[in-house]
Computed example of a mutant assay.
Amino acid sequence: MKIQRIAAETTTEAAPDAVWALLSDRSTWPSWSPLGSHSGVRPGRDGAPDGLGGIAQFVTGRNCVREEIVEREPPRRLSYALLSGLPLRNYRAVVELTPTGTGTRIRWSASFFPGRPGTGWIYRLVLTRIFRGMVTGLAAAARD
C-alpha cells in the first residue's frame, strides 16, 4: 500500500500567537472544529495537558480517537500521531503556522497508510473535509 497525504490551508488576520493559543490547547478544538468532545488521557512529560507526549481523546459521533503530541515548536508547529480509533497506520499530522504580514497562514497536513487495501481514497476524502473544517474554524476563532 502506498502512503496517503492530505492537507488543507487558509490564512487568518490573527497573529501567530493568537492562533497558537487555540491550537496548543486541545480542549478548545471541539469549540471551533468539526470534532466532538475532548478529554485528556495523559499529560505531557512537562506536566502540561498538551505538552510533548500528552495524549488526548476526541469522540465525534461513533468515532473515538486517541492522539499523542509528538512535536511542539511554539508558536510555529504542532505534530501529533494517531494512537487508536481509525484503521490507519503511521498516521502523523502536522499543523504549521507561518506569519504573513499581520496575519497567519495555517496549514494542517497528514500522512498515513490505510489499514486495508483499497481504503486510502475514502480516508483521504473524509479527512481532507475534516481538515478544511479545522483550518477554517481555527482561523475564525483566532480572529474573534
Score class of each variant (00 low, 15 high):
R62A: 13
W29C: 03
R92I: 10
P75D: 07
S37L: 06
A15R: 15
A8L: 09
E68P: 00
R76Y: 12
Y123N: 02
I130N: 00
S37G: 13
G133R: 05
A8R: 06
T102Q: 12
F112Q: 09
L97Y: 10
G118W: 05
T102C: 05
M1K: 03
A14M: 04
G40N: 10
G47V: 12
L125Y: 08
R66E: 15
Q57S: 14
E96M: 07
A7T: 14
E71L: 07
L88W: 02
L127V: 10
S111L: 11
S109K: 08
P16I: 15
R62Q: 10
A21N: 03
I3M: 13
R5H: 14
I55K: 04
W20E: 12
G133K: 05
T102M: 05
I69C: 03
L83S: 06
K2Q: 10
Y91G: 00
P49D: 15
L125I: 00
R72N: 03
W20K: 04
W29L: 13
L23A: 09
R143I: 02
R89E: 13
G51D: 06
L52S: 01
F113P: 03
R105A: 13
L82M: 09
E71S: 00
S27V: 02
A8K: 04
R5Y: 14
G133L: 08
P34T: 12
W32N: 02
V95H: 06
L127H: 07
E9A: 11
P99V: 14
A56C: 08
F112H: 11
G133N: 08
D144N: 08
E73I: 11
S79T: 04
R92G: 06
G54F: 05
A56H: 10
N90W: 13
V59C: 03
T119S: 03
L82P: 05
R42F: 05
A21P: 02
S111R: 14
G36T: 13
W32S: 03
C64E: 14
T98A: 10
A18Y: 02
T102F: 04
E68M: 11
I3H: 06
E67A: 01
G103C: 13
T98R: 12
G133Y: 07
I3D: 11
T11I: 15
I69K: 01
I106N: 07
A110D: 13
S39W: 02
W20H: 07
A48M: 05
A110Y: 09
Q4L: 05
S27L: 02
L97H: 09
P117V: 04
G120M: 04
P99S: 11
W121T: 11
A15T: 14
G118P: 02
G85I: 03
G53W: 01
W32R: 00
W121M: 06
L138V: 11
L97R: 08
R132C: 03
W29D: 10
R129K: 07
W29N: 02
S111E: 15
P74M: 11
G101C: 14
P75K: 03
S84E: 15
G44D: 06
V65T: 14
R89T: 07
L78T: 03
T12G: 09
V65F: 02
G53C: 05
I3F: 05
R42L: 13
A48P: 01
F131D: 08
A21Y: 02
R89I: 04
F113M: 06
R107Y: 09
P75S: 04
T136K: 10
G40L: 15
T10E: 15
P30D: 10
M134V: 14
L52Q: 00
L52W: 00
I55P: 00
